[in-house]
Nucleic acid binder design. Structure first.
Lengths: 123, 123
DNA sequence: CCGTATCCGCGAGGATACTG
DNA sequence: CAGTATCCTCGCGGATACGG
């Protein structure tokens, strides 16, 4: 609106948001939710290597930021589904692009690292 | 490319790359370099709040990953310019989109947080 | 099944001082 | 100007155990 947010300002609230969404786990979670609702333990299995605590924390923050919604179904045992909100959907394409960039350009990065290390090592 | 990289695998090298580029400071640096070469202390001033150490570290990693190149000019005192590589350019649009998403949707996020906190506090 | 609670190591990253 | 070196804090995130 009238107030221009500037992510380059140290005290701008956008910095908090940037810190949340520019996060490895958040990126993977948001990307994983693109296809539809996913249950907690399903996410846990899919995102190989994430701990229960960190998954829980990250989901809670994403929910608080309005990117993800949490639905509890009173089955026995209880079922919980996480779904992208409309706001979340506006972000996932961007976030998914980052994850996929890593996959597509992995070889180039590895090559660059090898060249850099060779230069540093040899002189 | 016989080998398919999968960012959901814990031991996939793409995880390292994702960890690097899904980083607040890296995002800001890459976005800042879009317009052209920038000197070290200029970056330091522009990216409000970043420390000298972290800027140096992040730039070195980005250089190692082949996203940024470093050019030294033998002036007195010495001048150092950081520039995006072609590989870096393939990433900046995506990365910039994240930073700008934060600015554009800040109000929505703040509103969601307020609603969440009200719910959590009241009942 | 879906979490919360607790302990704790480790490394990111800020502050400060110094060098080429 | 463009860093490196050092110290120190703080909280991320893994491991484990337990509750709803």
């Amino acid at each position: 609106m009238a107030r221009p947010y500037d992510v380059y300002e140290a005290r701008c609230p956008t910095r908090m948001v940037l810190d949340r969404i520019a996060d490895k786990w958040a990126v993977l979670i948001l990307d994983r939710l693109r296809a539809g609702p996913v249950r907690f333990n399903h996410l846990r299995r899919d995102i190989n290597g994430i701990s229960q605590k960190v998954l829980s924390q990250t989901l809670k923050r994403l929910e608080r930021d309005g990117l993800v919604s949490r639905a509890v179904f009173p089955t026995v045992p209880v079922t919980v589904e996480y779904t992208l909100t409309p706001l979340g959907h506006t972000l996932t394409d961007t976030v998914a692009a980052i994850a996929h960039w890593a996959e597509r350009n992995m070889d180039a990065v590895l090559k660059a690292q090898a060249a850099y290390d060779a230069r540093a090592g040899a002189g």
